[in-house]
């Protein structure tokens, strides 16, 4: 007979195997924090379902309680209980030790990819007309200044891209420039990595500060070329544009 404890354990193990071993066959492996989150959700689901009524509570928690209280146990049952009572604190201790022990790995980080721009870069409009000539000029400038890293196909895979961690932004991804307004790109290109606020970890980005090399006009035109080349359109609050 399969009780709720066994099916719960099978379900948890199944979720873990799926997230840890099966999913990475198709895509990049999940970070541990995410696996932990999903496992917690699955566990709370099992607990909620198991404690829904008096009878389900008894069949889920009853054996656990009886096992732990040790009433009327003998032989293997008694030994197993003793083993659990000894091993569980050891497990907690080991877990605490490993999380506190010094290691040569850098701590997990939480870098904000798209931090809020400073006030003076919010709501600037591109002063140059969106016409063929300007876009073509922008694409030419893009090819000269940006494509070595961001790629000739606007996909973040330029010849120099491999040298960078974090990698250069992929403009063809709908999660990057399509989510942003032109003024945001203007800020990022003009001020570069060093102009990022602290939550975005300015020391990590290798983006140059283009204001020292390019006039504003070039930057605005590069932005036009970028959107056109990546087949994206900037985020706006107007429907007609």
């Amino acid at each position: 007979m399969r009780g709720p404890i066994t099916s719960g354990a099978i379900l948890l193990a199944g979720v873990f195997v799926f997230l840890k071993f099966i999913l990475p066959l198709f895509t990049a492996p999940l970070p541990a924090s995410l696996i932990y989150l999903y496992m917690t959700l699955a566990f709370s689901g099992i607990m909620l379902y198991g404690t829904m009524s008096a009878s389900s509570l008894e069949s889920l928690m009853g054996p656990v309680f009886r096992f732990l209280s040790g009433e009327g146990q003998s032989g293997t049952g008694k030994l197993a209980r003793l083993a659990v009572l000894v091993l569980f604190p050891l497990l907690v201790g080991w877990q605490t030790y490993t999380s506190l022990a010094p290691s040569d790995l850098p701590p997990g980080e939480n870098r904000t990819i798209h931090p809020a721009p400073p006030g003076e870069f919010v709501g600037l409009a591109n002063p140059y007309q969106n016409n063929e000539a300007n876009i073509n000029m922008g694409k030419g400038l893009y090819a000269a200044y940006c494509s070595p890293c961001h790629g000739a196909n606007y996909d973040g895979k330029g010849p120099a891209a491999k040298g960078f961690n974090p990698p250069p932004a992929n403009f063809a991804d709908p999660g990057t420039i399509a989510q942003l307004q032109e003024s945001y790109l203007f800020w990022r290109i003009k001020k570069g990595g060093v102009g990022l606020p602290v939550e975005a970890m300015p020391w990590k980005s290798a983006m140059p500060r283009w204001e020292v090399e390019l006039p504003d006009e070039f930057i605005w035109k590069i932005i036009m070329g970028e959107y056109d080349g990546a087949h994206q359109s900037p985020r706006t609050w107007e429907e007609d544009d």
Binding site: A28, P29, P31, L34, L37, Y38, N110, T112
Partner: peptide
Amino acid sequence: LGVWMTPHTLVASLAEAQKMGGTHHPLL
């Protein structure tokens, strides 16, 4: 809830971030 709680920018160690190619997971 699982979808709602999945962050856009994940907390990942250096090795994990390298495998994902950044702190954005390609699928999730």
